[in-house]
Design a protein around this nucleic acid. Structure first.
Lengths: 232, 232
DNA sequence: TAGATTGTTAATCGATTAACAATC
DNA sequence: TAGATTGTTAATCGATTAACAATC
């Protein structure tokens, strides 16, 4: 085994989760014609402290210049490469309800290395219909998509009740990265990554903090409902 | 100040983020007629270790019975109360594009204490149209919504370019909790909570791990693209 | 009482932060 | 050289985990 540059192992998960935000901020600077930034400026744009930014970037390598800062294009390229965005990732979306429909039409995917190559649904009435320029295909198309198109990432936008079945089908077909919008926990074998986006979980976390703020302002909880208490 | 039961302060953020998942698992048990669960069973359903579950629940109080487990309904109620879900939270969605449209039609909100009371957009052509049974209203309706309907949570589903303006308008109107779907960092004053859901960030994190797995399987990176290397 | 399972303790691990030596 | 800013160190903080005493 040679010590190739990218074998510098183990970028912390917390750092990986922030790299997309740094990349977005850098893209913003580039669009405004700014060619060089300090860690202070980039951190402000990404909404973090500069010490955290420098620590994060230090895991990728040493791409800054002391006393000067970072070259915007170069750092953006290095982050892209680390994230695996210098190549295209074929994506399939399963479940063509409201959300799947919106995801299929969402332009944000294409802009950054992701190509939606297929839309799938198990509802016979939908199959064959065209959504956002792509025909809806049956689940049986999965194996072919992996073999012929190199499908690597599956997005689950079905109801919770069918999400595990869809997940199993994706895994059987050889898909090893799954983005799950269904509000349920998925069981997968080792080697398969699942990330979850859950709208009502996010709202529930906001509600917790909103309630705390109301209590801090002097409201009280009566039978599980907030009651405003007259100040003074 | 009396030592009311809920003044036991400071539930860790990591714990709060998991409470919705526990609540969902409990709802599942309740639907199947199961009235009592052990930490082991509940943890399995929520996808965490039992030690972590018990530690999380210990921050809320002592709602289990040693040697027996937890009463499903009672624990669900306690978590609901802690999250502030025993009351209704009025929600407004701003931005009626693909995503906003899908969110407006999403039934998952209503099921758990959230009521979509208004849809807003700044596009004059959309205003007055009906989506999912609600008329689209102009941004100028915000102040009234806060005063008359108690609007507490704003969901931003606009393009990134207008997200900060929309955020400022929400904050000016008195909204202190914001769920942001626009791919950008929002600046808000102290006391305002923002949570962010970013589809392409999630895909980018998956791409990072997918690339790592490919490299671990023996592929190599040539000019930023993965190349399969013949095994043997 | 014996068996089961909670709630808590203490150890470990990972992430954040501030400070500063290295260096452009 | 003097000024600026990175990359790294060491201290702190918070989260996870395993083990077990408490107790139903």
């Amino acid at each position: 085994m040679s010590a190739d540059p990218s074998s510098r192992r183990g970028i912390p998960d917390a750092t990986v989760a922030r790299l997309p935000e740094y990349l977005r901020a850098l893209t913003g600077f580039a669009e405004r014609g700014i060619t060089s930034v300090s860690s202070e400026e980039l951190a402000a744009a990404a909404g973090v402290r500069s010490a955290k930014l420098r620590k994060d970037l230090s895991h990728l390598g040493s791409y800054g210049v002391r006393g000067v800062g970072y070259e915007v294009d170069h750092l953006a390229y290095q982050i892209s490469r680390e994230l695996g965005l210098t190549q295209d990732w074929p994506v399939a979306i399963v479940g063509m309800g409201n959300l799947g429909h919106a995801l299929a039409a969402y332009s944000g995917f294409a802009t950054r290395g992701f190509r939606v190559v297929a839309l799938l649904d198990q509802d016979c009435d939908l199959i064959g219909q065209e959504i956002a320029g792509l025909p809806v295909r049956p689940m049986s198309a999965l194996a072919d998509l992996v073999a012929a198109r190199g499908l690597a990432i599956g997005v689950i936008a079905t109801p919770a009740a069918s999400a595990q079945d869809v997940c199993d089908a994706l895994v059987d077909a050889g898909v090893r990265s799954i983005l799950n919008f269904a509000p349920c926990v998925l069981a997968v074998p080792d080697g398969v990554d699942v990330r979850k986006v859950d709208l009502s979980t996010e709202l529930q976390i906001l509600a917790f903090h909103e309630q705390r703020k109301a209590l801090a302002r002097g409201s009280v909880l009566v039978d599980g409902s907030l009651r405003r208490v007259a100040s003074e």
